[in-house]
């Protein structure tokens, strides 16, 4: 246990130090007048916090709610589809190809269509968040189910396990490392999807807050809001990583291999 904690600290300290160094460097550069007007000093951004705090909480709650719902929808859908691919192996390739195709369609291109179909508002945000998070989740689930050891499959056959027992006792645990890798990657994507949907035009949510402060050239407030988004995404990632370290105790984290944007 203490070894794990030490590993966590060891992993957290260097990036924290680098972040601190960047912050101090920026402060110094700003003080020397080396930075353009569009890049505020960290202290200027921090000074925004008290006046913007209520706004951040209000808009942040909206964004988080949409992102979470979209994330949950995407995860359920991905698991369901991957289970279908697991049960009917012939469908695996078509399902994955379809997902690849959907993934390389720019969300931005289809978002306006969804505006027409479901209107502006929370439903739109949830839909776009779900679409943004869906692909890595599906790939992770399919990969995870594919990672089942062949000998294990034969063993479960020999001991006459039912389909349901195979899913619960073999397929899902085998897939868990991959699922968590995908869940970690998908969380920031769901947040980003919500943000994009909010940028489409709404007066609530962090996306709206960013656009408003951007258009009123409120530099510090823009930075603060975006930093909040980054913090939220890091928080989501960290939370899932924490759950993962509690649940998946038998192996190191699998490498998901799919980047965010």
């Amino acid at each position: 246990m203490s070894g794990a904690r030490q590993g966590l600290i060891g992993a957290l300290v260097p990036p924290m130090l680098v972040l601190l160094a960047v912050g101090l460097g920026a402060e110094l550069a700003k003080g020397l007048g080396l930075l353009p007007i569009t890049v505020p000093a960290p202290s200027q951004v921090a000074a925004m916090l008290p006046t913007s705090f209520d706004d951040l909480m209000y808009h942040g709650a909206r964004t988080v709610r949409s992102a979470l719902t979209g994330y949950a929808v995407a995860a359920s859908l991905a698991l369901a589809l991957a289970s279908v691919a697991l049960a009917i192996r012939a469908l695996e390739r078509p399902i994955v190809s379809m997902a690849v195709l959907v993934d390389c369609i720019p969300i931005i291109a289809i978002a306006p269509i969804f505006v027409i179909w479901i209107g502006q508002g929370p439903h739109l945000h949830v839909t776009v968040a779900a679409i943004a998070a869906f692909f890595p989740l599906l790939v992770g689930a399919v990969q995870g189910f594919r990672a089942i050891d062949r000998n294990m499959e034969e063993l479960f056959h020999v001991i006459a396990a039912s389909r349901w027992q195979r899913l619960c006792k073999l397929a899902v645990p085998s897939a868990l490392p991959y699922l968590f890798a995908a869940l970690k990657i998908a969380a920031p994507l769901a947040l980003l999807g919500t943000l994009i949907a909010e940028w489409m035009g709404t007066d609530r949510g962090l996306g709206a807050m960013i656009v408003l402060s951007l258009f009123s050239f409120d530099v510090a407030r823009t930075w603060l809001t975006i930093l909040t988004v980054c913090g939220l995404s890091a928080l989501a990632y960290g939370l899932i990583a924490l759950i993962e370290s509690r649940v998946v105790t038998w192996t190191g984290p699998a490498d998901g291999g799919h980047g965010g944007r």
Binding site: P15, T38, K184, V211, V229, S233, A234, G259, G260, R261
Partner: peptide, 22 residues
């Protein structure tokens, strides 16, 4: 490298407005 791997999973597009600002 660890920092870059972490940043890779961040929603980079979220900082697009900052790039517009700059």
């Amino acid at each position: 490298l660890p920092l870059i791997v972490i940043l890779r999973t961040a929603p980079i597009l979220a900082i697009a407005p900052l790039l517009i600002l700059i």
